[in-house]
Computed example of a mutant assay.
Amino acid sequence: MKRSLMVIGIGAGNPDYVTVQAIKAMNRVSVFFIPNKGTKKTELLRLRRDICERFIENSDYRLVEFDIPERSKYGRYKQNVELWREEVRRIYEKLLTESLAEDEIGAFLVWGDPSLYDGTLSILDTIGSSGTFDLDFEVIPGISSVQALAANHKVPLNRIGESLTIMTARQLSEAFPIDQGNVVVMLDGQGAFRSLDGDINIHWGAYIGTEDEILVSGKVRDVRDDIERIRNSARNEHGWVMDTYLLSKDPKTGGE
């Protein structure tokens, strides 16, 4: 079986972040596979639908919704991720078999950029190498929450002549590589920044790019309680919170 797919980065939440390349790609697609992540994240489902309605010129495309299983938060992290991806792989294979014909192009609309903390590409690689499908897919980059965070705070991501580290909160809790330059933290469900040296600067943002966007900046020691209060309030209001933040030792970072 031959199947053609596009993995399209649609940006960090603002429809204006959708690139011209992404719009052109969307207008080639016959079937969009739209994940349903439960009642707490129906807003993400709605935003995907709104983006399709706003940018697709014809009306002969289809939206196929599918449920995404929750990943276990207990036990070993990597093992849980591998088991979760295996479940999703089976769902993707079923979608490609039952909802996409050989003469059609399917698409997954990925928040931010498909290359950054998203499992879609790895899962499709596994499907392609399994021999189940003759799978051909194209990747369209998008504006990530990392880029949008820096733009909305009006700061560069890197210091002059230094590297930029992007990590998860789980990694941050193990070690903070501040001597290597600035650090961007994603996927922080527990507020790992609270344990940091209070002299570190933080540029924090939640729901970046959306109408609910919240931005806070300052020394960690001065704003961590405010951020924690805001995060808890936002989670109670929306049922979920998605945040990203930039950490730096220097009050003013310089780019090059």
Rank of each mutant, 00 (worst) to 15 (best):
L95C: 04
V146G: 02
T97W: 12
Q171P: 06
K249H: 09
E82K: 13
L124I: 06
A107F: 01
E256H: 12
K41V: 01
V81Q: 08
E228K: 01
L124S: 03
V29Y: 06
T39P: 10
R49T: 15
G209Q: 09
A169C: 07
I34G: 02
V110L: 01
G11R: 01
V88R: 00
D188Y: 06
I91F: 08
G205N: 09
K219L: 15
E256R: 13
N236Y: 01
G119V: 03
G131C: 14
V183L: 10
L247H: 02
Q147K: 13
A148K: 06
A101Q: 13
M26K: 09
R235F: 05
P141S: 15
V31M: 08
T42D: 08
I68N: 03
V185L: 00
S4V: 00
R46A: 15
L44K: 14
Q180F: 13
Y207V: 00
V20Q: 02
D125L: 14
E57W: 12
I202R: 03
Y17E: 06
L124R: 01
D103R: 08
K252S: 09
R48F: 10
V139M: 04
Y117G: 03
G218W: 03
M1I: 06
L96N: 05
G161N: 13
G205S: 12
K37Y: 03
